[in-house]
Nucleic acid binder design. Structure first.
Length: 488
RNA sequence: GGUCGGGUGGCCGAGCGGCUAGGCUGAGCUCUGCAAAAGCUCCUACAGCGGUUCAAAUCCGCUCCCGACCUCCA
């Protein structure tokens, strides 16, 4: 196996990936808070980790991919008081909080299914692990890194920084954080401004609450990931991932919790994906500039000219590196749509190629380059560039300008199949007319008529048939070998 | 305000000391009844100003813009 390098947020450089217990890889990715529809920015993160998961699987690792669902405890704002997001939404929609959770969990799964992502091996929920979270709180208290104030438990950052580095992941200046005079508003029962809630006392009107040694309450946002990653992957595992926006707060606090309870850093490699932007601004629910995947597929969003298929969007995402921001626009999507079509067509052309006694192009070279690209921090844009180099070769063989041996042809077919479908996770979307159905017989009849009039050089009738078919999204291409159909 | 990350050809987007990706768009050519598809060719860019170096889009400094984080966010 060739060495694989990935960018580790902890060290801020690319490192060779060496799992603790090969061939096993443990990977934990922070999942969504299911209080509203997942938007395209969310989807980008999970598509990025899907590539990473798929690539590990492809090169032979046995991956345990854990991705949580946050269905409790996520508060509005940082005041550690008031409703959580689920309760607020439940009131708004006049349903139970768990109905909110169910609705948006299903939505999330449906979207990821459309993007053709592989499901995680374990998908734990916060509400399903209340006991584990309470136990973890107890451990942190026992170790002296948390304190109770009127039924709530807070993590003692001041205490923590005496023994550990609180800002290792975020690389922030601790003094700046401590002295930041930014007004947070509202009074606070916490001792330190960086302290955060592990367990929150439930108010009487609060709907989601559980018994604990400190009374009825619910878990803080960060504790669930510490509890669940430990339960399914152990105290130390290989990779922890999530969106970049989780670095300074969520992941920083998660590491603190793990160190305060188990005295070890949970993950050896931290991978963070960058944001999707719209007109240069981060796509986020609070900014109101988010696109729902459904709006994108259907083309109903007001900023869109037309709809784009899930695979077009997926390909669009893969044309940028996961650690770069990706700006979302009609033009860029259109370019991806065309490019994907070109790539997929070339894949189909492979089957039609005639072989020769020698190859005028090194398939082995191309194969090496493709793996090199992926081994360099999952560089899908580079990979795609190489695949397009191969596309030109494939088309040239078809045109008789290049040659390929039968062994190379088989290798080429496998290479494209592996990278397009297994690793990039793309799939065929265009529905060609059904070869066995009545559709096909009808088309056959139409094409027979057209063939007849073309033979008589009646090109105006021939073109009329082509134009009429185009109106119903069936495109006819006349080639040397006959008529090719494309249906959209 | 503090911290961090960016500014690449018409658009998107890689590269991050020498070899000047790739996709889309546009122009021309080949093929074709025409079109489409495909191939070939062309349009050669790195915000600005200094500096280091035999050599800089790539390193350093300054300036100007933009974004992210510091508040929930993937």
């Amino acid at each position: 196996m060739e060495p694989l390098f990935l960018y580790n947020t902890l060290s801020r450089k690319k490192e060779e990936f060496k799992p603790a217990h090969p061939p096993f890889v443990g990977m934990y990715v922070c999942g969504p808070t299911v209080y509203s529809n997942a938007h395209l920015g969310n989807a980008r993160t999970y598509v990025s980790f899907d590539i990473i998961n798929r690539y590990f699987l492809h090169i032979g690792y046995k991956v345990r991919y854990v991705r949580n669902i946050t269905d409790a405890g996520h508060l509005e704002g940082d005041q550690d008081e008031g409703d959580d997001k689920f309760a607020k939404k439940a009131k708004l929609e006049q349903v139970e909080p768990m109905e909110i959770v169910q609705k948006y969990t299903l939505d999330f799964h449906e979207i990821l299914r459309q993007f053709n992502t592989l499901p995680p091996n374990v998908e734990p929920t916060a509400t399903g692990h209340i006991i584990e979270q309470i136990e973890l709180c107890k451990q942190i208290i026992a170790n002296g890194f948390a304190y109770e104030i009127s039924g709530s438990i807070y993590f003692d950052v001041q205490k923590f920084i005496k023994d550990y580095n609180y800002t290792e992941l975020s690389n922030r200046n601790l003094d700046d954080l401590l002295t930041n005079t930014r007004d947070l508003g509202g009074q606070d029962e916490k001792r330190g401004r960086l302290d955060f809630a592990l367990w929150i006392k439930a108010k009487p009107e609060h709907l989601m609450h559980w018994p604990s040694p400190w009374g009825e309450g619910f878990p803080g946002w960060h504790i669930e990931c510490s509890a669940m990653s430990c339960k399914y992957l152990g105290k130390e595992f290989d990779i922890h991932g999530g969106g970049m926006d989780l670095i300074p707060t969520h992941h920083t606090n998660e590491i603190a919790q793990n160190l305060a309870s188990h005295h070890v850093q949970p993950a050896r490699y931290w991978i963070h994906t960058n944001m999707l932007t719209v007109n240069g601004q981060k796509m986020s629910k609070s900014l109101g500039n988010s696109f729902l995947p459904g709006e994108l597929f259907a083309g109903t969003h007001k900023l869109l000219d037309k709809g784009y298929s899930p695979m077009t969007v997926r390909f669009f995402m893969l044309q940028a590196h996961y650690r770069s921001t990706l700006d979302f626009s009609n033009q860029a999507l259109q370019a991806s749509e065309k490019g994907l079509e070109r790539l997929m067509n070339a894949f189909k052309v492979i089957d039609t190629l005639k072989t020769a006694g020698n190859s005028s192009f090194s398939v082995e070279d191309l194969r090496k380059k493709c793996y090199e690209a992926m081994n360099d921090d999952f560089n899908t844009p580079i990979l795609i560039a190489y695949l397009f180099d191969g596309v030109r070769f494939i088309n040239s063989v078809k045109d008789g300008k290049e040659t390929i041996t039968s062994a190379d042809l088989a290798a080429l077919k496998k290479l494209y199949s592996d990278f397009i479908f297994d690793i990039m996770g793309l799939k065929e979307e265009n529905n060609l007319p059904d070869a066995s159905g009545s559709d096909d017989k009808l088309m056959g009849a139409v094409l027979a008529i057209r063939r007849e009039v073309r033979a008589k050089k009646d090109f105006s009738t021939s073109d009329l048939i082509r134009d009429e078919l185009k109106k119903i999204n069936i495109v006819i291409r006349d080639t040397k070998d006959g008529v090719v159909l494309e249906k959209f």
